[in-house]
């Protein structure tokens, strides 16, 4: 019961954060709302007994991603508040999004899924599997990261003034 109350509180935080991202007039506020939503997600992970992923979530999203986004904000000119959202599009967007939400929720209620009580993943077992069974995909993911790193550098390199 307590866990349900905690879940509602954290969900509320996550949803408030998400709403802040899409409704706030100030882009810096929007990014802090994003941070709130991401940390809330980490809380959900903890509730679901995935503490390793919660830590990863806080470190990568809360630490790296939001920081990088703030850097991007600092490096670009922050636009006029009014032009942050496109007023012409919002009615149709809202309508379609609501429709999608309704469809999703109907789908969720329609689908019968066999559930059980909260299951635990042992951390040692998880790490063993990750590096044995999923070893090659893991290495490939690291390769993708490397490629992205190089790609980002290449994209940002100022070719015009180099020579």
């Amino acid at each position: 019961m307590i866990s349900l109350i905690i879940f509602y509180i954290i969900s509320a935080l996550v949803l408030i954060g998400s709403a802040g991202v899409i409704f706030s007039r100030n882009i810096v506020y929007a990014s802090f709302s994003l941070l709130l939503a991401l940390l809330g997600t980490a809380g959900i992970f903890v509730l679901l007994l995935a503490e390793f992923l919660a830590i990863v979530q806080i470190l990568i999203y809360g630490g790296a991603v939001v920081t990088v986004i703030l850097f991007a904000l600092m490096l670009t000119k922050i636009d006029d508040f009014r032009s942050l959202s496109n007023i012409n599009y919002w009615p149709i967007s809202a309508f379609l999004t609501l429709l999608a939400l309704i469809v999703l929720i109907i789908g969720i209620y329609q689908t019968k899924i066999d559930t059980q009580n909260l299951g635990l993943v042992k951390f040692s077992k998880f790490s063993n599997d990750l590096f044995e069974y999923w070893g090659i995909p893991f290495e490939i993911a690291s390769l993708v990261l490397l490629v992205a790193l190089i790609g980002a550098i290449v994209i940002l390199k100022d070719r015009g003034n180099d020579s």
């Binding site: 496109n86 149709i92 429709l99 469809v103």
Partner: peptide, 20 residues
């Protein structure tokens, strides 16, 4: 880009509804 995003969602909905 917004047009693209809207059409994408629209297409997604049509697919889901057809399937349903």
């Amino acid at each position: 880009m917004h047009g693209y995003a809207i059409s994408m969602l629209f297409g997604f909905l049509i697919l889901i509804l057809t399937w349903a």
